[in-house]
């Protein structure tokens, strides 16, 4: 807080927020943005549900393609990254910058493993004759899951940026909320995947 009496800034570990809601502007902004993202994914998930099956004779359908054990494993990897993200936030709140960096790297790696799994899956489907333009199902499938993959990738870039900042010493404890806000985004992307996994892969 700036203290006019002292004329210098008094650092606090958890900045208090003099906002009407008590939530900082940035965090509230992120919540609102994520609310908006729900509708974006809602539109794409709806599209997938409408186009779940290709027309007769237009390439393979979901029941011939999906490898549910494989995708379950990569989904598990992505969900575990939420755990490491929580640990990263908790580390910086305790001022443990070494652990912060470790957990950020772990989260980014798990996220990358998920994206790698998606790339592998796409390649396998492509080899089985499912191009992006093959059928309405293929467009909807690649569109929805690819869109989610881009979101994970953006999250990884954010995590790496945090890591870089932390290494440069520009992520002190009193900025821990920045990590928390990236965490919000990350958890949201994970949560959306649970829906996508259920809707696309599990519900027949």
């Amino acid at each position: 807080m700036f203290d006019p009496e002292v004329g210098a800034n008094v650092e606090v570990a958890h900045p208090t927020h003099d906002t009407n809601t008590g939530i900082s502007n940035t965090k509230l902004g992120m919540w609102l943005f994520l609310g908006s993202e729900c509708l974006l994914f809602g539109g794409l998930i709806t599209t997938y549900l409408v186009y779940k099956y290709p027309l007769e004779g237009q390439g393979p359908g979901p029941d011939q393609l999906f490898d549910i054990p494989f995708t379950s494993a990569s989904s598990f990897v992505l969900l575990m990254s939420s755990l490491t993200m929580v640990l990263a936030v908790s580390a910086i709140e305790r001022g443990d910058h070494h652990r912060l960096r470790s957990w950020l790297v772990a989260t980014a790696l798990l996220g990358s493993a998920f994206v790698a799994g998606q790339v592998y899956e796409f390649t396998a489907f492509l080899n089985e004759g499912l191009g992006f333009t093959t059928s309405r199902f293929s467009s909807a499938f690649y569109g929805l899951t690819g869109f989610h993959g881009v979101h994970v990738t953006v999250g990884i870039i954010m995590l790496m940026s945090l890591l870089l900042l932390s290494l440069r010493g520009r992520l002190p404890e009193h900025r821990s909320e920045t990590v928390e806000i990236v965490g919000l985004y990350w958890h949201f992307v994970d949560l959306v995947w649970i829906f996508i996994f259920a809707v696309v892969y599990l519900i027949p």
Partner: peptide
């Protein structure tokens, strides 16, 4: 919101913009 908040909030603004799909960093 005293003016101090304005600056603070804006300093973190990268988060919102970054989330536009450009993936700028978390706004530190």
């Amino acid at each position: 919101a005293p003016e101090a908040d304005l600056v603070d909030a804006d300093a973190d603004a990268g988060t919102g913009a970054g989330a536009n799909g450009e993936g700028a960093d978390a706004g530190t």
